[in-house]
C-alpha cells in the first residue's frame, strides 16, 4: 500500500458517498446516468469475485464489500426508489456498444486464460469506459448539478491517483500490470475534458455547463 493508492481509494469512496448523499438529500437522481451506475455495479461484481477466496487484508475485504454493496444500493435507488426522477430520455447511451467490445477484448487480451482472470480483465476494461454514459448524458443536458460535478471529480481523481500508485510500485516494488495501466490511462483521459471544466468553472463558483 502507498499514499497514492490510499488517497485514490479514499477519493473513490468519497465519490460514492457524494453520489448517495446527493440522491438521498435531494430525493432525486436527476442528472445521473443509471447506465453508468449499472456498469459500475458490473465492474465490482466481476472484479471482486475473489472476495471469499483470496483474503488480502481487512482493508481490502472491507472496501470490496463497501463498493459492491453501495453500487447495488445506488442502482436500486435509481431504478426503484427514485425512479420517477430518473431522466431516461437523456440517459440513452447503448450499453451493448460498451459491454460487447469490452467482453471480446477481455477474451483476447488478458494475463492468463482462466475464468477469474478473464472476468477481472473484463472488469478493468469496462471500468475504463463505464463513465461514458454519464459524460454522454451531461453533453446532452448541457449541464450538471454542482454536487454531481464534485462526484465526478472525485471519481476521476481516484484512477488518476492509481496511475501515480503504479509509477510508485514500478520504481519501488518492480510491480507492473500493463492491462491495468493502459485501461487506467484511458479512463483518466476520458475525464480530461470534464477536469478542465471543473477546475475553470466549478472551483470558481460557477455552475458546470458543457457546450451542448
Amino acid at each position: 500500500m502507498n499514499i497514492f493508492r490510499l488517497i485514490g481509494d479514499m477519493s473513490h469512496l468519497l465519490a460514492i458517498v457524494l453520489l448517495l448523499l446527493k440522491m438521498w438529500k435531494t430525493r432525486s437522481c436527476a442528472g445521473i446516468s443509471g447506465k453508468s451506475q449499472i456498469l459500475f455495479a458490473l465492474v465490482f461484481a466481476t472484479r471482486y469475485l475473489d472476495l471469499f477466496t483470496a483474503f488480502i487484508s481487512a482493508y481490502n475485504s472491507t472496501m470490496k464489500l463497501f463498493f459492491i454493496s453501495t453500487s447495488l444500493v445506488t442502482v436500486y435507488l435509481m431504478y426503484f426508489k427514485f425512479r420517477a426522477t430518473y431522466d431516461a430520455n437523456h440517459d440513452t447511451f447503448r450499453l451493448e456498444f460498451l459491454v460487447v467490445p469490452v467482453g471480446g477484448l477481455a477474451f483476447l487480451v488478458n494475463h492468463n486464460f482462466s475464468p477469474l482472470e478473464i472476468l477481472w480483465t473484463f472488469s478493468i476494461y469496462l471500468e475504463s469506459v463505464a463513465i461514458l454514459p454519464q459524460l454522454f448524458m451531461m453533453s446532452k443536458t448541457g449541464e450538471a448539478e454542482t454536487i454531481t460535478s464534485h462526484y465526478l471529480f472525485a471519481l476521476g481523481s481516484y484512477r488518476a491517483l492509481y496511475i501515480l500508485n503504479w509509477v510508485f510500485r514500478y520504481y519501488f516494488e518492480g510491480f507492473f500490470d500493463l492491462i491495468a495501466v493502459v485501461a487506467g490511462c484511458v479512463q483518466t483521459i476520458l475525464y480530461c475534458d470534464f477536469f478542465y471544466l471543473y477546475i475553470t468553472k466549478v472551483l470558481k463558483g460557477k455552475k458546470l455547463s458543457l457546450p451542448a
Binding site: R5, D9, H12, D50, T53, A54, I56, S57, N60, M63, K64, F67, H111, N112, E117, W120, Y162, N165, F175, D177, A180
Partner: peptide, 10 residues
C-alpha cells in the same frame, strides 16, 4: 498464489 497475491489492488 502469486497471482492472487498480485491482485491486491481494488
Amino acid at each position: 498464489y502469486l497471482q492472487a497475491q498480485e491482485k491486491d489492488e481494488l
